[in-house]
């Protein structure tokens, strides 16, 4: 049976609203599996999945691995140190070797934009993009959507602002596509040096000041500020970043309404987000992590060619 998502999950840009909703609807019932004492269903028994990580990742890789194991797949983790192009095996050779081992799915994290697609075009196995360069991170986008949907009921008309280093963020791109498709209004806020120059053409509002974003938004998705950005000269200092763009309790207290706070992690406390916000009553950061496992189970399940109608049954071990 062909998957309702197609062969691969490479990004949210080319998915329809229906396909995105389908993943979220499929994830909902699967969440319960992780609440059991025996957190395992046999749905993907016999399937071989390779987690191919060219970049260091703790959270995403662990989340995928739990999702795979709770669906009873056989998993292998391959961590390949981010190497220069002249060293080591090429991606195309890696792809051919994996294909020769007759695997069913590859979860790939890679430092180059387009790497997941490159792999998907060259192997028959399903490919799941776990983050490619500064392009997309679709499962993160989906888990953000699931978290927001649970809190808001619907995303239609809700205002979500993505704050920080949008220029280098794959999370931001997947969020923009997913939120827009599900009917939310999307804004970005950050120093212009960390926003793509053509960002308005992606159909989002732009705020130059975090105060304006807080005034406007129902939810803030606060991006991690990579320390390298300071070294590369995009911003003068982390201290100033916090003073001008930091999401602080003081700023949130002036908001006209309660604002949900999301963060894809790992957080730089005291830089893009203050601890009392991250740990505060409106933070859904840990819900995001919980939902991450369910969303990834749903993606694995759907890509494996399972009928979305059977997701409920999968809980019982279809």
């Amino acid at each position: 049976m062909t998957s309702p998502l197609g062969k691969d999950l490479l990004g949210l840009e080319h998915l329809s609203a229906e396909q995105i909703s389908l993943v979220l609807d499929t994830a909902e019932p699967l969440k319960e599996i992780s609440e059991r004492t025996i957190k395992k269903v046999p749905t993907l028994r016999g399937a071989t999945i390779v987690n191919l990580f060219f970049e260091a990742s703790t959270r995403t890789r662990t989340s995928f691995e739990f999702a795979e194991k709770r669906m009873s797949a056989d998993t292998v983790n391959i961590a390949i140190a981010a190497s220069s192009v002249s060293k080591g095996e090429t991606l195309v050779d890696t792809a051919r070797n994996l294909e020769a081992m007759r695997i069913d799915m590859v979860v790939i994290r890679h430092q180059s934009s387009g790497a997941a697609r490159f792999l998907a075009e060259r192997i028959e196995s399903n490919v799941i993009n776990a983050g490619d360069g500064t392009h997309e991170h679709p499962t993160q986008g989906l888990l953000d959507l699931l978290t927001l949907r649970q809190r808001f009921g619907t995303l239609k008309g809700k205002r979500v602002c993505i704050c920080g280093d949008v220029l280098h963020s794959r999370v931001a791109r997947s969020n923009i596509w997913g939120l827009t498709k599900l009917g939310a209004e999307v804004a970005v806020c950050g120093p212009r040096s960390l926003l793509p120059s053509a960002i308005e053409q992606m159909g989002v509002h732009v705020f130059d000041r975090i105060e304006q974003a807080i005034e406007w938004a129902d939810a803030l998705n606060v991006l991690r500020l990579q320390l390298e950005r300071m070294q590369a000269g995009y911003i003068p200092s982390l201290r100033e970043y916090n003073r001008v763009f930091g999401v602080t309790r003081e700023r949130l207290d002036r908001a006209p309404r309660d604002i949900l706070i999301l963060h894809p992690g790992p957080m730089n406390r005291g830089v893009e987000i203050d601890s009392d916000v991250a740990d505060g009553p409106h933070s859904v950061i840990l819900e995001q992590v919980t939902n991450g496992v369910a969303v990834r189970m749903a993606v694995l399940y759907l890509l494996a060619g399972n009928s979305p109608r059977l997701a409920e049954a999968a809980k019982g071990g279809a």
Binding site: G133, T134, H135, R170, S197
Partner: peptide, 15 residues
């Protein structure tokens, strides 16, 4: 080229 396509594809643009 730097523009909407580079923004979408997540590739560094050349203005």
């Amino acid at each position: 080229n730097e523009g909407i396509v580079s923004a979408r594809l997540g590739l560094k643009g050349i203005p």
